[in-house]
Design a protein around this nucleic acid. Structure first.
Length: 262
DNA sequence: ATGTCCACCGGAGGTGGA
């Protein structure tokens, strides 16, 4: 069995229903994981997605903020969620395919502006969130599992436009990278995107604030696809659809794709 | 490093979050 998967921080699924449909039409991933839906589950516009073949969904939502959804052409059953760091936010949902593969869809807290636990509660919550992810995956090591989402951390030097200039910028600080590495190690996770594309600058997010995001190209790789060790070899064909960042009224994130042959 | 976009509330534009 083979399927393609994409992960995309959509920054409001209701405002960008048309962009989601365009991705479904143009790229047709079997499974599309969305973050920042900013919608209660019952208000996600499903009709067009159904018409395009995405007849299955598992999702968690809340009014105005956060929210994660897995839209799928393949049957998928709800495999639960966990409120890491007890924030009361809709930031994680898991789904299970008929072949037994579990997909975890995450929206890790952004962490505010100041990278200091004492001065910034949001940064503290981000680190706590990652610590609880680590503990959870350590206690039940994932098998036949995929983890995707907006992890809000660009771990490698070549995952940001300037390693030196971003060392003290939230998303690329050493303490965040260490916390993310601990999640990977505890779960036996492997970075599928970087296994496929090991060399060179690679970004999935460009700020809205830049005058010309494409020319300035001050991006970061905040969106990730990971696989558990037992299925890592099944993953290939990763790519980032940079074009989507240039679509009309875009999300500030581009979709990240991978294929799995299982 | 940069300075835009989105949702909420409420019925305009301020506020919080990213």
């Amino acid at each position: 069995m083979s399927f393609t998967l994409a992960t995309w921080n959509i920054n409001s699924v209701r405002l960008r229903e048309g962009l989601v449909a365009r991705l479904m039409e143009d790229e047709a991933p079997d499974i599309l994981c969305l973050q920042e839906c900013k919608s209660p589950v019952e208000k996600i516009p499903l009709e067009r997605f159904h018409e395009l073949g995405y007849t299955h969904m598992v999702a968690r939502g809340q009014k105005g903020y956060n929210g994660v959804a897995i839209l799928s052409k393949l049957p998928i059953e709800d495999a639960g969620d966990k409120d890491f760091a007890s924030l009361g936010h809709a930031r994680h949902v898991a789904g299970r395919l008929e072949n037994g593969v579990t997909i975890h869809n995450f929206y890790v807290p952004a962490g505010g502006d100041v990278p200091d636990r004492e001065k910034n509660e949001k940064f503290s919550q981000k680190l706590d969130y990652l610590t609880e992810m680590r503990d959870w995956f350590r206690d039940s090591r994932p098998e036949k599992a995929i983890l995707v989402g907006d992890l809000n951390i660009a771990p490698r030097e070549d995952d940001v436009w300037s390693h030196k200039q971003l060392l003290k910028i939230v998303s690329h600080t050493p303490v965040e990278v260490e916390h993310l590495d601990n999640v990977m190690e505890a779960g036996g996770w492997h970075d599928v995107t970087r296994a496929d594309i090991p060399e060179g600058q690679l970004y999935s997010w460009w700020s809205y604030r830049a005058r010309d995001w494409d020319t300035a190209d001050k991006g970061r790789r905040l969106d990730h696809v990971w696989a558990s060790g037992d299925i890592r070899a099944a993953a290939h064909g990763s790519r980032i659809l940079r074009d989507a960042r240039g679509w009309e009224k875009p999300s500030d994130h581009a979709p990240v794709f991978a294929q799995f042959d299982l």
